[in-house]
Design a protein around this nucleic acid. Structure first.
Lengths: 168, 168
DNA sequence: TATTGTTATACTCTATAACTATA
DNA sequence: TATAGTTATAGAGTATAACAATA
């Protein structure tokens, strides 16, 4: 792909039967992406969908989804964090985090304790079973990460992490 | 970041006041990501969210969202395509594409015409105003792409496209 | 029987607004 | 007044299932 593929180009790239007002073209035809092929956002979105699907499948046996994993990991690494702090760090709406924590608390992985310093806020901690479970989740997540390496290559994955380090 | 950061590591990395059962830690503290920092999926997700927000903002004046743009671009480049073919090519559920096309058809950007070859399917085409509008959308999308270059660097963006070419 | 487009339902996620209890 | 947590609602987006028309 050339750099010019990323440019806006008002010329479409019609293919077979282009302009035939009545004939449908089915999936057996090769369907061109035109300008879309030059958009980083399109590739990133498709990649992200693939990653989430693999993560959900790989951690399916423990029923943990990407956002739940991120919340547990951050609480595990920063015991006593408030809900606002977790929400801000991970870019989750605080209203949504309430429901995420309700679910994790019902599963006895996390506990909310009233803060004595600021009685508006909750200090978040993993339970003992939560610590054990998170260790297993991390092993499965590492397995998922190896799937990514298998898909795009070890070097490319490492380079990707460097390129996107500013977004974490 | 070292390669080992991507490994599952059952040891959390507690920081200030770790283990203090009652003290909340607020956003002013530095909140560590632990294993999350080594997960490509986390960085890709945060990046993808940034990209979508910039795209929606940059194309806000024309009220076009990423999925709508992708549908218009593919129809423009492949006139006469069926709904199933568009859905498969872009990874959109066919049930969802129905609503997307309803909206684009109401805005007179796209038209559905009955196919004579297979009367179950619709052949999709841009209208004349749709062609004109898409040209403008592509100019704005190219501007959005320059925002990405400004954010991660020209070379990194190009490399990213090469790494993820298989997902388009 | 299978496929295309459609309708409908449910669940997830995002974005707000408003309420309460605290500060 | 402002903030933390909560509740509620609305709009996207995703995942299914079922149906009519057509193949």
């Amino acid at each position: 792909m050339t750099a010019s593929a990323a440019r806006a180009d008002s010329r479409p790239t019609p293919r077979k039967r282009a302009g035939n007002g009545a004939a449908p073209r089915d999936a057996a035809d090769d369907v061109g992406l035109d300008a879309l092929a030059g958009h980083a956002g399109y590739a990133v979105r498709r990649f992200q969908i693939w990653i989430f699907q693999d993560f959900i499948k790989t951690l399916g046996e423990v029923d943990i989804r990407p956002t739940q994993y991120s919340v547990l990991t951050v609480i595990g690494a920063n015991p006593g964090l408030s809900q606002m702090a977790v929400a801000k760090r991970l870019g989750i709406e605080r209203a949504r985090l309430v429901h995420l924590l309700d679910s994790l608390e019902q599963r006895k992985l996390v506990k909310r304790t009233k803060s004595k310093e600021d009685r508006r806020s909750h200090a978040l901690h993993l339970t003992a079973p939560g610590e054990t479970a998170l260790a297993k989740f991390k092993r499965l997540a590492a397995e998922h990460e190896r799937h990514i390496e298998a898909k795009i290559g070890r070097e490319n994955r490492a380079h990707l992490l460097r390129i996107l380090a500013g977004f974490t």
